[in-house]
Simulated assay, not measured.
Amino acid sequence: MIDFNEYYYFAHVVESGGITQASKCLNQPKSKLSKRISELERRLGVRLIQRTSRQFAVTDLGEEVYTHAKKMLAEARAAERVIKARLCDESGTIRVMSSAQIARACLAKVLPHFLQRFPQIQVQLDVLNGPTDLTHRMSDLFLVAHDRELGDSSMIQRRIAVEPSLMVASRPYLAGRPAIAAPAELSAHSLLGLAEPCAKPRWEILHRRTGEQVAVTLDAQLASSDVLALAAAAREGAGIAALPASACAEDIRAGRLVHVLPEWTAGSTTISVLLPSREGVLPGVRALFKHCIEHFPAAMAAAEERYPERLPINANIDASSLEPCCHDL
């Protein structure tokens, strides 16, 4: 196993012209430097330095090793300069993982403003398979839509918005069927449920005016963790779906979907922004984290305003006052 410290000490000894001078420059005992050079020679099986009490000379092989060791030190110093530069300003590439509905519906309005503010930053955006798919720790930041707690995690989490889920269906699906007047009548219909794998879909139906609550566990004909896929299925007449308001408001406004039981909501969806760790957060990532907290709720509200009936998206949520699900930054 390569010990790069050996090359570090060897390069300094050669540059200093001897162990004594290198000891003074590095503030290290001469015995330590001599031992590390001997260990390097023993591991390589060659003599790098000819040294006696009166003479210090680098062998031919030692000169070749020194050439490479010097390049290693130069690259290490260059790496440190890159890190120090990144720690001083907002620049570089930020890797973001996002739920599909957030990536398509809202980030188009959030990221352009951020990139205009920070032109030295590049963002690489990938889509999460589901709200619990937070294993891609190589990502710098996560934006997740979820209808339940994400569970115990070492990640830094901040809730930035909460929106209701609306029950919707296409006009062709509803045509010729009796009007739906109460939640109990939903059981006679084909239902499209939003659910994680191996979890049974469940709608927590809430009356928006009286606060009456009805819990409905669905025997869904179609269940998926992909909100946009369920929205597409609902538009094609597959049944009644419960979708986050921002994912269906435009379809309702355009008449592609009808708001079923408009006095009721089917639970809510929370939007959270997460960081993998509290430590080592680069300025650019920290800037995007704060930008999402400040601008994401307004972007959701703007999308919701296209629907004539004002939907209760919590766009004015005070993120700084929320109890974090995991840890706060």
Score class of each variant (00 low, 15 high):
Ser31Lys: 12
Ser31Ile: 09
Lys35Ile: 02
Arg36Thr: 15
Ile37Gln: 08
Leu40His: 08
Glu41Gly: 04
Arg43Phe: 02
Val46Ile: 15
Val46Ser: 09
Val46Trp: 07
Arg51Cys: 01
Arg51Phe: 00
Arg51Trp: 02
Thr52His: 05
Ser53Gly: 13
Ser53Cys: 01
Arg54Phe: 02
Gln55Cys: 04
Phe56Asn: 13
Val58Lys: 11
Asp60Gln: 14
Glu64Gly: 00
Glu64Lys: 13
Tyr66Glu: 03
Tyr66Trp: 09
Thr67Lys: 12
Thr67Trp: 01
His68Glu: 10
Lys70Trp: 00
Lys71Arg: 14
Glu75Arg: 12
Ala76Gly: 04
Arg77Leu: 08
Arg77Phe: 03
Ala79His: 11
Val82His: 09
Val82Ile: 12
Ile83Ala: 05
Arg86Asn: 10
Arg86Phe: 01
Leu87Phe: 02
Cys88Ala: 13
Cys88Phe: 04
Ser91Leu: 04
Gly92Pro: 01
Gly92Lys: 04
Gly92Gln: 03
Thr93Glu: 11
Thr93Lys: 11
Ile94Leu: 04
Ile94His: 05
Ile94Met: 03
Met97Ser: 05
Ser98Val: 03
Ser98Asn: 02
Ser98Met: 00
Ser99Glu: 07
Ala100Val: 05
Gln101Trp: 01
Ala103Phe: 00
Ala103Cys: 03
Arg104Glu: 12
Cys106Glu: 10
Leu107Ile: 09
Leu107Ala: 10
Val110Gly: 06
Val110Met: 05
Pro112Tyr: 08
Pro112Ser: 06
His113Tyr: 02
Phe114Trp: 10
Leu115Lys: 08
Arg117Ile: 02
Arg117Thr: 14
Pro119Lys: 13
Pro119Gly: 11
Gln120Val: 00
Ile121Lys: 05
Gln122His: 12
Val123Trp: 03
Val123Met: 10
Val123His: 07
Val123Gly: 05
Leu125Ser: 06
Asp126Ser: 14
Asp126Leu: 06
Leu128Arg: 05
Asn129Val: 06
Asn129Lys: 10
Thr132Glu: 11
Asp133Trp: 03
Leu134Ala: 10
Thr135Pro: 00
Thr135Glu: 08
Thr135Leu: 06
Thr135Ala: 10
Met138Trp: 12
Asp140Tyr: 04
Asp140Lys: 08
Asp140Arg: 08
Asp140Cys: 04
Phe142Pro: 02
Phe142Ala: 05
Phe142Lys: 08
Leu143His: 06
Leu143Thr: 15
Val144His: 13
Val144Leu: 11
Ala145Leu: 07
Ala145Val: 02
His146Ala: 15
His146Glu: 08
Asp147Ala: 15
Glu149His: 13
Glu149Phe: 04
Asp152Ile: 07
Met155Gly: 07
Met155Gln: 15
Ile156Tyr: 09
Ile156Glu: 08
Ile156Asp: 07
Gln157Glu: 14
Arg158Val: 10
Arg158Gly: 01
Arg158Asp: 12
Arg159Ile: 08
Arg159Ala: 09
Ile160His: 09
Ala161Tyr: 05
Ala161Trp: 03
Val162His: 10
Val162Trp: 03
Leu166Asp: 07
Met167Pro: 01
Val168Asp: 06
